[in-house]
Amino acid sequence: MRYEMDVLEQSHVCHCRMCQKATGGLFAALVGAKKDQIRWTAAPPEEFWSSNLAKRAFCSACGTPLGFTCDLPDARQYVTIGSLDHPEDAPISHQYGLESKIPFVEFCESIPGERTGARPRQCPTSSRT
Rank of each mutant, 00 (worst) to 15 (best):
P124L: 02
F48G: 10
S100G: 01
L72F: 05
C19T: 02
F58D: 08
E109H: 08
N52F: 04
T80E: 02
A54E: 05
S51E: 06
L72R: 07
R2V: 00
F27G: 01
L30Q: 14
D71W: 04
M18Y: 10
N52Q: 12
R121Q: 14
I92L: 11
P91Q: 09
F58R: 08
W40S: 12
L53Y: 05
Q10D: 05
Q20W: 06
H15S: 05
S60H: 12
G32W: 02
C70E: 09
M1W: 00
H94G: 02
E114Y: 04
Y78N: 11
S93E: 15
A75P: 08
F104H: 06
S11H: 00
C62G: 02
P73S: 06
V79I: 09
A118T: 06
P87C: 11
A57F: 15
L84P: 02
D36I: 05
W49R: 14
T23W: 10
E109D: 15
I81G: 01
M18N: 09
T64R: 05
Q95D: 05
D6C: 02
S60D: 14
Q77S: 15
E9F: 02
S50A: 14
C123P: 06
G67D: 13
K55T: 13
G113C: 11
Y78V: 07
S93F: 02
W40T: 10
C16M: 09
Y78F: 15
W49C: 05
K34N: 11
Q10T: 01
T116C: 09
F68H: 13
C19V: 04
Y78T: 07
P44A: 10
Q95Y: 05
E88F: 10
A90C: 03
I92S: 08
F58I: 14
P124K: 01
A29R: 04
Y78P: 02
C62N: 03
T23P: 02
T23F: 09
C62Q: 01
V31W: 01
F58W: 10
G25H: 12
P91L: 08
F27D: 00
Q20P: 07
K34W: 11
K34G: 09
A22C: 10
A75D: 09
P45L: 04
G63K: 03
R39F: 00
P91G: 09
S51N: 08
